[in-house]
Computed example of a mutant assay.
Amino acid sequence: MLPDADAVGAEVAATILDRLAAADGRPFLLGCPSGRTPMPVYRALARHAARGVDLSRLVIVMMDDYVEADGLRRVDPGLSYSCLGFAQREIVAPLGQPLEIWAPDPAEPSRYDEAIEAAGGIDLFLLATGAGDGHIAFNQPGTPRDARTHVTPLGEATRRDNMGTFPEFTDLEMVPTRGVTVGIDTIAASSREVIMIVSGSHKHDALMRIKAADVYEPDWPATIVVECKNPTLIVDRFALEGIE
């Protein structure tokens, strides 16, 4: 347990640097969520970059993105809620180093899994859980264990969670209703190591579900972390409030 989200971010960033240093000069695939939970990690990485740490071998592998109503196109990266745009603005730009960004194409979702596998898998996948429904990336409750990258309708709980991330969503009707996402099996089968980040008192129920799980529970997709290789659960004290 760490004191707050910033301490979590510093700890996770230090782990990323350790793994990157051990990668023998090759590209290092870092699976990245967008949103509030990982922001302290990205800010900590930017502080390291400002001190001259070379992060240029990182390949930013985004988990998901909103798609247009036809389900075949990602939303415009210029929109604040675009996950590809998030990667460009909130992860890569602050580092001031040329990093490659990958994002799933809703027109050909299976190509994403193929590219990840061809690269040897994701070295380290950062994960976060939805507070209201346990979604991970855009995998919704009920997503089968063997799901790979796919386009999916977004449930109301996921969309309400994301209203807190993007203040311009002042009404639920403004939140896109479809997304493209890595699948449950993409996360479990294609990553060498995962870190599940849980911070904030609003996540304590989600943390309880994850801590109680022994296997993947489809009604709470974030429980896939217990079936991943080399999993680490890292939390702050606020997420632990009310948990024995």
Results as ranks from 00 to 15, higher is better:
residue 124 L to V: 07
residue 101 I to W: 04
residue 172 L to N: 08
residue 117 E to R: 11
residue 117 E to A: 15
residue 2 L to I: 09
residue 188 A to H: 00
residue 107 A to N: 05
residue 26 R to C: 04
residue 185 D to F: 01
residue 115 A to M: 12
residue 3 P to W: 04
residue 12 V to E: 10
residue 156 E to K: 10
residue 136 I to P: 00
residue 40 P to M: 05
residue 62 M to I: 06
residue 165 T to D: 09
residue 200 G to F: 11
residue 186 T to M: 05
residue 139 N to S: 09
residue 14 A to T: 13
residue 107 A to E: 12
residue 212 A to M: 12
residue 30 L to I: 08
residue 77 P to Y: 08
residue 171 D to Y: 00
residue 76 D to T: 09
residue 78 G to A: 12
residue 11 E to R: 15
residue 93 A to F: 02
residue 233 L to K: 01
residue 114 E to F: 05
residue 62 M to K: 06
residue 150 H to M: 14
residue 141 P to D: 07
residue 189 A to I: 03
residue 240 L to D: 12
residue 134 G to M: 03
residue 191 S to F: 08
residue 225 V to E: 02
residue 190 S to F: 13
residue 199 S to F: 02
residue 35 G to I: 04
residue 181 T to M: 01
residue 184 I to E: 04
residue 139 N to L: 07
residue 110 S to F: 01
residue 42 Y to V: 08
residue 67 V to K: 01
residue 42 Y to L: 05
residue 64 D to V: 02
residue 194 V to P: 04
residue 111 R to D: 12
residue 235 V to R: 06
residue 46 A to R: 02
residue 19 R to K: 15
residue 21 A to D: 15
residue 35 G to L: 04
residue 92 V to S: 07
residue 25 G to W: 12
residue 229 K to T: 07
residue 240 L to V: 12
residue 172 L to E: 09
residue 181 T to A: 03
residue 73 R to P: 01
residue 24 D to A: 15
residue 15 T to W: 11
residue 133 D to T: 02
residue 84 L to D: 02
residue 69 A to V: 14
residue 226 V to R: 14
residue 200 G to H: 08
residue 100 E to L: 09
residue 201 S to A: 15
residue 69 A to M: 03
residue 1 M to W: 00
residue 10 A to G: 11
residue 82 S to F: 02
residue 166 F to S: 09
residue 121 G to H: 11
residue 143 T to V: 15
residue 28 F to L: 10
residue 227 E to S: 02
residue 29 L to V: 14
residue 53 V to C: 01
residue 150 H to W: 13
residue 31 G to C: 02
residue 109 P to I: 11
residue 125 F to N: 14
residue 33 P to F: 07
residue 162 N to Q: 10
residue 137 A to L: 03
residue 216 Y to H: 10
residue 189 A to N: 09
residue 122 I to D: 00
residue 115 A to I: 08
residue 88 Q to V: 08
residue 200 G to W: 02
residue 12 V to S: 12
residue 138 F to L: 03
residue 11 E to C: 13
residue 150 H to Y: 13
residue 22 A to C: 13
residue 165 T to C: 12
residue 176 P to W: 06
residue 119 A to H: 11
residue 108 E to W: 07
residue 198 V to N: 04
residue 14 A to M: 06
residue 242 G to A: 03
residue 170 T to E: 13
residue 22 A to Q: 15
residue 2 L to R: 10
residue 229 K to D: 03
residue 180 V to D: 01
residue 64 D to W: 01
residue 185 D to L: 12
residue 59 V to R: 15
residue 169 F to R: 07
residue 173 E to T: 07
residue 63 M to C: 06
residue 78 G to C: 02
residue 232 T to K: 15
residue 172 L to A: 09
residue 172 L to P: 09
residue 200 G to I: 07
residue 126 L to R: 07
residue 55 L to V: 08
residue 157 A to P: 01
residue 85 G to S: 09
residue 40 P to W: 11
residue 188 A to T: 15
residue 71 G to T: 10
residue 103 A to I: 14
residue 188 A to G: 13
residue 85 G to K: 04
residue 26 R to P: 13
residue 109 P to Q: 13
residue 88 Q to R: 14
residue 39 M to L: 13
residue 14 A to H: 10
residue 4 D to K: 06
residue 174 M to D: 00
residue 193 E to W: 05
residue 154 L to I: 12
residue 31 G to E: 08
residue 54 D to P: 02
residue 87 A to W: 01
residue 99 L to N: 00
residue 232 T to I: 14
residue 55 L to Q: 04
residue 214 D to T: 14
residue 38 P to R: 06
residue 48 H to M: 00
